[in-house]
Design a protein around this nucleic acid. Structure first.
Ligand SMILES: NC(=O)c1ccc[n+]([C@@H]2O[C@H](COP(=O)([O-])OP(=O)(O)OC[C@H]3O[C@@H](n4cnc5c(N)ncnc54)[C@H](O)[C@@H]3O)[C@@H](O)[C@H]2O)c1
Ligand SMILES: NC(=O)c1ccc[n+]([C@@H]2O[C@H](COP(=O)([O-])OP(=O)(O)OC[C@H]3O[C@@H](n4cnc5c(N)ncnc54)[C@H](O)[C@@H]3O)[C@@H](O)[C@H]2O)c1
Lengths: 206, 206
DNA sequence: TGAACGCTGTGAAATAATTCACAACTTAAT
DNA sequence: ATTAAGTTGTGAATTATTTCACAGCGTTCA
């Protein structure tokens, strides 16, 4: 079912979920596709079409914030808790490891890896740390499903290979490298920060 | 001209540029659309169509790595140096501020901002730091074109407003908030890390 | 009671993006 | 010299995505 949701739709729905979380926190009970469209900078039609991938979810007086959030949560399995790990505990890896936003999400950072053993010893954190060569074993043993790659570009592919060896199901890659992976069941999302600067450079006039 | 390049194409071309940089560094002189397609996980047709937005760029023996990189550089204005600033010098903001990848890019981080004055005083960096209320003045005075938002979600919109007030041309937003901006000339790119975990959750089976 | 308004859901239309197919050309090898 | 293999550029076809238009329903207000 979820497989049939187009990626652009999934991306919007994920953001919509965050919007609904905020609206709910603000005490809002109902919201229309028109308002959601304004908030998200898309047309109301798109909002309705997107939501309709889960069948009827609204009424003639709009959508119930909590019901809709719940529908998305169930439909996209956001209610399932996922174990994750971070490989490469440098600047970016540490920023992520200490990110407070995971607290009230269903993402559990269960392990951190680095090839620099000294680094592992000096870091102060509650999260279990391991040398990089243990990635396959630890990922498998702890059934970690998601991996974050924040190693230098030269080490990105081999890191991905180790994660895949351990049976990882999804990867978020921060290194400016295109990860090669022949298993189509493994989802890979790339996060190219520097590219964003370039894209902006090209988008702004002169 | 560049306005007419579709966004998906621009995004791929930006990555292609990075790939070409690497190939050039490795000493490669020529490359075919087929090989680029394998590297980038897209079809060779897409590669050729993308490149063709700049007119003919290859020959019957493929593309010259350096010529193609140069064509993209000129066409997408990657040769133009851009001044940028970072607002919110917490975990993520600092990771970015100390990111070594800017060194050999055309992005110059010219200023850092934070609302916490104590924080500004304790940070050790070569980059000039300012309190957040000075954003409009400093951005205008230094002609800073790009702004990065790494403040807590509640402060994201007001930060964007200040950047816009200063005449910013493009924004990279890390806060899980949809920035409202009625000026269509200002480009905004969102970087929702937590959403990526959610999207992966939805993509992987069970 | 009834008219006006605002809402969703959805098939149809329009638009956008990707993929295909092949002409035209080069190079290499036999 | 000729054949085979490999390449790009590009119009056409296909596929994907977004937008439109409106039926159908409930609510509100006169
Ligand atoms: N820092 C940023 O703001 C930023 C921005 C954009 C992209 N990135 C990308 O993120 C990645 C990390 O950047 P960073 O600034 O954190 O770098 P960093 O040098 O601060 O950290 C890299 C870490 O990876 C570890 N490492 C190296 N090889 C490893 C291996 N084989 N296995 C496990 N760990 C290994 C190093 O010991 C180090 O701790 C890079 O690919 C970079 O391009 C970073
Ligand atoms: N750290 C991460 O790995 C991570 C991951 C995903 C998203 N983010 C997002 O990035 C943003 C920053 O995250 P963080 O972890 O770095 O937070 P943080 O709390 O470490 O840093 C936030 C910084 O912003 C400053 N600040 C607060 N209000 C400000 C204002 N009005 N003007 C200027 N500065 C202000 C604070 O003083 C602090 O230094 C958040 O929106 C967060 O959701 C962070």
């Amino acid at each position: 079912m979820k497989q049939s949701i187009p990626l652009p739709v999934l991306e919007r729905l994920s953001i919509l979920y965050t919007v609904l979380e905020r609206l709910e926190k603000e005490g809002r009970t109902a919201v229309s596709s028109a308002e959601l469209g304004r908030i998200m900078n898309v047309t109301p039609h798109t909002i309705r079409k997107d939501i309709n991938y889960f069948g009827q979810a609204g009424s003639e007086s709009g959508y119930s914030v909590s019901t809709l959030r719940n529908t998305l949560e169930k439909g996209l399995r956001f209610d399932v808790s996922r174990k994750a790990c971070i490989v490469g505990l440098g600047r970016m890896g540490l920023a992520l490891m200490n990110f407070s936003g995971f607290k009230d999400s269903n993402i559990r950072i269960e392990a951190g890896f680095d090839s620099n053993i000294n680094r592992l010893e000096t870091l102060k954190t509650d999260i279990e740390l391991y040398p990089a060569y243990e990635i396959p074993e630890v990922v498998k043993r702890k059934s970690i499903e998601l991996g974050v790659i924040t190693v230098p570009p030269e080490a990105a592919q081999q890191t991905a290979d180790k994660l895949i060896q351990g049976g990882i199901k999804g990867i978020i890659n921060f290194a400016p490298v295109i990860i090669q992976c022949d298993n189509p069941a493994i989802a890979i999302r790339n996060f190219y920060v520097l590219e964003e600067f370039r894209i902006l450079s090209a988008l702004i006039q002169i």
